[in-house]
Nucleic acid binder design. Sequence first.
RNA 1: GGGCCCGUAGCUCAGCUGGAUAGAGCAACGGACUUCUAAUCCGUAGGUCGGAGGUUCGAAUCCUCCCGGGCCCGCCA
Length: 553
Amino acid sequence: MKELVKERVAEAVRKVYGEDAVAVLERASFEKPKRKEFGDIATNVAFLLAKVLRQSPRAIAEEIVRVLRGSRDFESVEVAGRGFINFKLSQSLYEEILNAVVETDFYLSDVGRGERVLLEYVSANPTGPLHVGHGRGAVVGDVLYRVMKLTGYRPEREFYINDAGRQIKLLGLSIYLRAKELKGEKVTLPEDAYSGEIEIWKRNYIFELAEKLLKLKPDLLELPEEEAVEIAAEFGKEELLKQIQEDLRELRVEFDHWFSERELYEKGEVERVLRILEEKGYLYEKEGALWLKTTLFGDDKDRVVRRSNGEYTYFASDIAYHYNKIERGYDRGIDIWGADHHGYIPRVKAAIAALGKDPNWLEIILIQLVKLFRNGAEIKMSKRKGNFIPLKWLIDEVGVDAVRFFFLLKRHDTPLDFDLDLALSTKSENPVYYVQYAHARLCSVLDKAKEEGFKPSSNSLNLLTTEEERELILRCYSLKYELQQVAVKREPHRLTYYLIELASALHRFYNKHRVVDGENGELTSARLYLVEGVRKTLEVGLGILNVKAPRRM
RNA sequence: GGGCCCGUAGCUCAGCUGGAUAGAGCAACGGACUUCUAAUCCGUAGGUCGGAGGUUCGAAUCCUCCCGGGCCCGCCA
């Protein structure tokens, strides 16, 4: 209905001040005022026009209102304060909106204008199970994808597999050494090896992999070390990737593409990109290493792309990877990274610029730390390297619905304290329950009504005139606007807040008004129609979060 | 030292492309169940929006400086 009010105002402005003045509408706000007395929608256009026209906001607002009075869409249009214009929607407009909510896919829109967006998220190294931090990034990416699809973007999801280079070799070495240990040999793990320790499970995944590998390949330790390590690396990587994929499936997170770093090397992509940079004169050698002049493009120091030992850095393949993404024809790339990588942004953007592409093509969403709390105290693992809390553990503790919902309870760039007790609570203090309960409650009302022979009908919507009913109608419809905000601002957490507010409005309505009323069949049918609209909106909203909307609880 | 992020109610946080008297949940206190799910709702109380300047009709929101907290500054990823 915002769009509708905006259109009407645009017509009025055009009539009074001419076509040129209409442009300010783009910057004007059309919001639901905080105070009810100010009506259903308020706009500040008069203030914006005041600057352009050099007249008082109040006088301009009065001119606009003069034209708008008499429209059948508004019960009233009034000037307030120093120049706000407040609209009260007419009953017929409310009815129209509710109809749209129940009968159409009203929440779809086209703010994305068909933009092709490549979303890359999780991209965890296949050197261990996913931890809770990965989970948060996964849910943010997944929900952003779903919302973008509904708002006119053409998004795709990608997981970048770091299956080349040092980390994988180190994984192989770690497994190999643990295998030796299993056979009774005394070994010392290098400082940066994976210990495999998962304290909270009292398990060690490197030992487990070593054991499994020894069963498959009993002669492993008789092979030359280099060959054995390579076999262990390949095996470990495959196994861990499978585990990661299983964890993601359980979290209900999917991908369209699994992109292998190793393939970049095998196809010569890394060399090719470095050659382009070479030709442009952005590479130089120093102390035996090959450097990229990222400082020419805003980075604070130059970066190594090939180490003095001849190995490429992670940065080198990352340049090739991003170049590859751009060449695949996406209009925009969005990477979701852990916030500790923020220092990495300038060099990647610099590399893109060095390649002659627009660094603004790439957007980075940073995901802050997740801390887990139980009984008011943080669950802390010992600081030893590689020791963390697996995502799978969290899912097993509180369930997928709570995990997904809770990960979106704060903006992605602020640290998240995850309260396990709260996630398991079955009271209104637990937002997941609160929202799901609203849905179940409505299903229960609809079932009850059916038993008593009532069914939803739009015949007498003119009976829905109370404050709570109007509130619900507008809130349902504003899902469309919320989704646009989520997509444009890349802030999926808005959706959880929206659902909590919708559920709250519903509970308020429910406690004040009786839906099924044997004495008044007309009103019952109309309210059932509203109930169906709210139920549908909750179902759609929860569906986008990929959280269950139960019929019964 | 440099860079990025953050400072809003006792606690956890929304609100930030500038808009009317700054919101929610929890905790506290007081109420509402012969009635469609009380797994809910209503009310009360709680604030120098870290501080100081600036921009203007108007600032939690934008700019500058200061204070406080976190993270990052590798030929690791």
